[in-house]
Structure formats: C-alpha cells, structure tokens
Design a protein around this nucleic acid. Structure first.
Lengths: 237, 237
DNA sequence: GTGCAAAAAATCGTATACAATTTAGTCGTC
DNA sequence: GACGACTAAATTGTATACGATTTTTTGCAC
C-alpha cells in the first residue's frame, strides 16, 4: 500500500552483485577518511584487493566517479577526489539550496516513530562526541552525515535522497581536506535544535537553523588552495 | 585566474572515449523520444549498433542507469526507464524544490550576454512552436529543457547543473509517458515571463513564475498507471 | 488442446587476453 | 654532470571467451 517501498530503494532486488559491493566498500573507506584525497586507485590493485578481476574494479571506480568521489582521468587512472576550494563552495551552496526544502517535506511527512529514530541518532551522536580515538571520530563523522541523510529519507523523495547521498559524501571529503577544528565537524547540538523545531511544527525556524548549521560547518573550513594541489596543477596542467 | 574553468566541466579533457559517446547517443535518443520507455536495450544489440564490444555497451548502459534513464535488472538486461506515476511526482517535486534556488543564484550572477543568450533560446523556442512535424516537436521538447539547463549553467554551480541535467532528462521521459496535451509540453510564454522578471530584478516574482511554470507542466500530466505497465508486471513480476 | 518438465537458446556476469597509451628508466651525447 | 631520445615496464582501453542465469522452445503426459 505504501508506495515508499518502491521509492526508498533505487535498485529493485539485491545488489547488482560484485561491483556494487566493491563500490560501497571503497565509498565507505573514502567517507571515513581511510583513503586520503588524491590517492591513486589502480584498477589492478583494487581488483587484487577484493579478489576480483579488473573488470569489476573498473566498474566500481566508474560508479564512484559518477558520485564525484573519484576522478578518473583518461589513460591515467582513478584517484580519490581532491575537491578544489571552488568545488567545496559549490557543494555547500548546493546543500544550502536543497536542505531547507528537504526539511520542509520531511517535516510534513514525519511520523512519531521517525522522530524517535532521529532522536536516537542524536543520542548516538552525542555519545560519540564524548569518546576519544580515531575510530570514534570516524563514527562521529558518519553519524553526523546520517542525520542529514535520514532527513532526506523521511522526505520520501528518492531522487533528493540520492542527491543528498552524494552531497554528504563529498562534504566529508571537503571537511577532511579543509576542516580546521579538531573537534566535531558537524556541530554541537544544532541537530537537536532542528529536531526540536520540527517537533514544535515551527518550520521556518527549523529551516533557519538548518541554514545556520550548514553555514557553521562551512565557516570551519579554510578554503585555501592546498600545496599538493598547486604542485599537481603545476606539473600536469 | 578563474577557477571556474576547473569547475564547469566534470571531466578534464575530452570524452572518456567510446563509452561516453555511446552513452550520449542513447541518452539523446531517449530524451528525444526515439526510444520508447520500456524498450529493451540488449548489450549485444547496443554493441553491434555502435560497432563496439559488449564491454563498452555495458559501460554506457550502466552510466545511463546512474542517471535514471535506464533500469538495469540483474541477469535480465537494461530497459529504457519507465517512470511510475510516483517517480514522476518525485521528479517534479525535486524540480519544485531545486529550481527556485537555481533561479536566484542565476539571477545574481547573470551577465548581459547571458541574458541575450536566454532571449535567443526563447526566440528559437517560439519558432519551433509554430512549426509542424515530429522533428519540430522533438526539437521543441529539447529547447524547452535547454532553457532550464541554461539557467542552471548560469547559476555557476556545476553540481546543481548536473542534478538539473538528470531531472530535465527524466522529465522528458515522464512527459512522453503521461503528457496529455498534444501541443507544447513546456508552456506558452512562461519562459519569457521568467526572463522578464529576472531582467527587472524581481526575484520573488521570477520564483513564483517558475513554480507556477513547473506546476503547469505537471498539471498537463495524467498520472494514472499505464496498462502496458500493468500487463508487463502481470507477466514478469 | 492444455499443462508441466526438461532441454536449448539467448543474455547477462565475470575473467582473461591483447592493443594502445602513459610512465619510468637507461643510454648516449654535449 | 645535465639534458634529450630511445627502450622497457606498468597501466589503462577494448575485445573476446567462458560460466551462470534467465527465457524460450520442445516434448510428453493427461
């Protein structure tokens, strides 16, 4: 009865086999910053690493390039994306443009159980903020993104959800490159404030908080050209 | 000096060879409605048609699946996307959500020469509206989409431009399936009104017109399940 | 003639092989 | 010793080949 069952999953049945799994594994590695921007992803290496042929490795890399997480250069290979400051600005401009709309749709459709789910995410987030260690920070980054992705899922629009998937993943790359503050990339209790505003049906306030939140993340960035990037451009323009 | 040169084109140099060209060719055929929704795109057939191996055909089809223009079903093959009424609603919901924001950014950055370019597009559009024949109607559909895509290009955000690329292409599929009016799918002189509002710096009015315009397109659709779809589902569930 | 089961054909999933391009290394010349 | 051209290694681009899954056809029983 609920048409969302059709909308929530992009592919009909289980994964398209092999390539999909490899793509997800590499994407996780990129988003969790275990793969640094600019790292070369040789097709042979990826294939050997996952015990598959170069065919599947190549398919996975191409898929990642469509999401903007990997750049494939003709006859040169695939590299973990190294977003330029300008790309970073575009990513956040896109989020400022999109997320308020998603928030409004989500607020209009949200159910009590979904509110509960969101609150649980917030608890997990604050818990991770209290812990030490790299793994905790990685989990925190992921949880922070999951908040925005869950909102997109609640909005019920599979297309916007996919767009947000891409934007959140790329945001993680940008924060890895240009983030300054050692602490939480996403912030404070701003997520909680947004949920509170949604609960009290104050949509305008929720949107304002969301925009403020995104601006806050962006303000923590130092969007100056990195040396490595400059060097690369100097050698291979 | 302008870092936009890096941002405006997703791929650095010319096409990734083969697969990219095939992808574009098939995409054009889909958008121009020379390939009907639901048509099977066998890897072998596509390969033979373009005189390439199945490898490249497959890569092109996968690329199209990432754009939502074809559905690849595991072990069954690729088919020109057959958007469900629900998907159609999501596509237009996404456009309503995104396009006002793009319009605002475009209005803030637009140059006189770009205004001129837009006006030329409008002239071309009205010219095509006056002509008869399938080819003219195809060109009209394309021109109508180009208006929205040009706006996205002017906004200067390559990411939003890509999102709009996808949404406009999929909209064409939806209109092909569910459009009712035999005449212009996109409408009247609404494009012209939007440009006029932009020129007079009346952003709020421009956004209102844009939303009205999108609603107008959607209102022309008959979003009922098509029989063919039902039959197909009955035979191959 | 209808319905089901098994075999044949077609199609996709994946691996391997070869050609083309790039990159690294080497040798010779200045 | 530095620079440039040539050769060799590595990597990507594309094609072909083989195994797995699906679809169609065939054949038989009822």
């Amino acid at each position: 009865m609920n048409s969302a069952s059709n909308a929530l999953q992009t592919t009909d049945d289980s994964a398209e086999t092999g390539a999909q799994q490899i793509r997800d594994a590499i994407r996780d590695a990129i988003v969790e910053r275990r793969l640094s921007p600019g790292t070369k992803l040789s097709e042979s290496d990826v294939g050997n690493l996952f015990n598959v042929s170069r065919t599947l490795a190549r398919a996975a890399l191409q898929a990642l390039s469509y999401e903007g997480l990997v750049n494939v250069e003709k006859n040169r290979g695939a590299f973990v994306a190294y977003p330029s400051p300008d790309e970073a600005r575009q990513i956040f401009a896109a989020r400022r443009l999109i997320e308020p709309g998603i928030l409004r749709e989500a607020a209009a459709r949200i159910t009590p159980s979904e509110i509960q789910h969101l609150k649980q995410l917030l608890l997990e987030e604050t818990r991770l903020m209290g812990e030490r260690g790299q793994t905790a920070r990685r989990a925190e980054i992921k949880a922070s993104g999951d908040f925005h992705l869950t909102l997109a899922a609640i909005s019920g629009n599979a297309i916007m959800q996919r767009f947000m998937d891409e934007l959140v993943a790329r945001s993680s790359l940008v924060i890895a490159l240009y983030g300054q503050s050692t602490v939480s990339s996403c912030g404070h209790s701003e997520h909680g404030d947004i949920v509170a505003a949604m609960e009290s049906k104050d949509l305008d306030r929720a949107c304002r908080l969301m925009l403020h939140h995104i601006a806050h993340i962006e303000a923590d960035l130092d969007l100056r050209e990195r040396r490595t990037q400059g060097l690369k451009d100097a050698f291979e323009p």
